[in-house]
Design a binder for these strands. Structure first.
Lengths: 222, 222
DNA sequence: TGTACTCGATACGTTCCTGTATCGAGAGGA
DNA sequence: TCCTCTCGATACAGGAACGTATCGAGTACA
């Protein structure tokens, strides 16, 4: 076992190579978002990144491989951001925590498009599907401790952590499309937030030591 | 108003032409599901349908146009099915109605992939986005009367019809991915159903004339 | 049955993209 | 500073898909 190298088969990647890969991945995100993955070409990505196709084939073997690398990097970043925000902020209640979390995971048009296509892509390729399922699991493990803690502080005990986690992810995904489809509708955004609160409420019960039941959803703006 | 013709600018489509279009649309659905829209070619669709490219260009001007036509036809069919099922079945309670509805809108792998890509596609093209938003509206108008009626029979009054409708659609979309990502997990399916019931509960209140509050979610299987 | 016209098949030229093989600049180590 | 070897640029050949122009079978209608 070679001592310093972290991963077994990790070649010593030069700084130069790393920079090139970075720029290619960044360019790919933009191109995929604009053109769609299937309609994108190696040339488009290279042109956007300021390289020739030679650089591409020296770093990746196919667009598929690049697509996976790009998606993994970007979604890992988002997960880190989310983790950081949720760790720093000490929310006073579910509502505050929700706002912090929603701010950390903004509804991003371009990223949504890419993710939607990657999902479809992954559903066709079992290996990719497993990658995505693992990421989903990581998301749950990241957000749930904080969600549970925030609800606890609000006098509510989570009954089924896994179910709540999946529900939150599903609501996030499902409502994101709606917001993007009607970007100018404030009521869609409000209803999204309300739905989150309802779900938090439904999957938690008043703590024993709480004097009186404290519902998550206090007022209902309309 | 011309008596038999439904639409004003509808050319007299020959039966022959209609058949050809049908077969092309059917083939397109299959090809798009397998290859992805962006990766599909006119040739693939034609080969699958048993035509040459000449037939295609005689019926459509581009793959984009075919994609739209295919999506509209298929989603209109699904909406009709849903309407029929919901109209026929006289459910005794929310749970029964939910099962009927979920049976009418099965989680279909191939169709999900196509829809996901069409959504991404539509988000890039305002005209298509409007088409999709309109369909979404139609879905709401179809399911909501029945949902309201079923809940009413269960002694519950819907407080905000629009919000409930959007919530149901969001939950459907969001949980469908989860089911497809982990097709063998029974708990994911159960949690999906539970989430639906929770949402029905959250967006309705006990009717005045009801003797005692009747929550939608009676038992909780796990 | 005859005739006109629709509509799918065939053929063509063009454009775009792919993947590889080779070369040379320059980064990195001694 | 010199030397080595990595890595991106360049050039090449092949192939895939596009859109159009034209033709002829067979359909529809009188």
């Amino acid at each position: 076992m070679p001592p310093p190298e972290a991963r077994p088969n990790a070649r010593p990647v030069s700084a130069r190579r790393a920079r090139t890969r970075q720029r290619l991945l960044d360019a790919a995100l933009e191109v995929f978002a604009e053109e769609g993955f299937g309609r994108s070409t190696v040339e488009q990505v290279c042109e956007r990144a300021g390289f020739t196709r030679g650089a591409f084939y020296s770093n990746f073997t196919s667009l598929d491989e690049l697509f996976l690398a790009m998606w993994e990097r970007r979604s890992a970043h988002m997960l880190d951001d989310l983790r950081a925000v949720l760790a720093d902020v000490a929310p006073d209640g579910p509502r505050a925590a929700l706002h912090a979390a929603l701010a950390a995971v903004p509804v991003d048009d371009a990223w949504y498009r890419v993710t939607a296509e990657f999902t479809a892509h992954a559903l066709r390729h079992p290996a990719l599907r497993r990658v995505m399922a693992a990421r989903e699991q990581a998301i749950l493990e990241t957000i749930m401790p904080v969600v549970v803690a925030a609800l606890s502080r609000a006098g509510r005990r989570v009954t089924d952590e896994e179910a709540l986690g999946r529900a939150l992810v599903a609501v996030h995904d499902g409502t994101s499309v709606q917001v993007l489809m009607e970007p100018d509708s404030a009521s869609v955004r409000n209803q999204r937030e309300q739905l989150f609160l309802h779900v938090l409420d439904a999957y938690s019960a008043p703590s024993e030591h709480a004097a009186s039941p404290v519902p998550v959803t206090p007022e209902e703006p309309q």
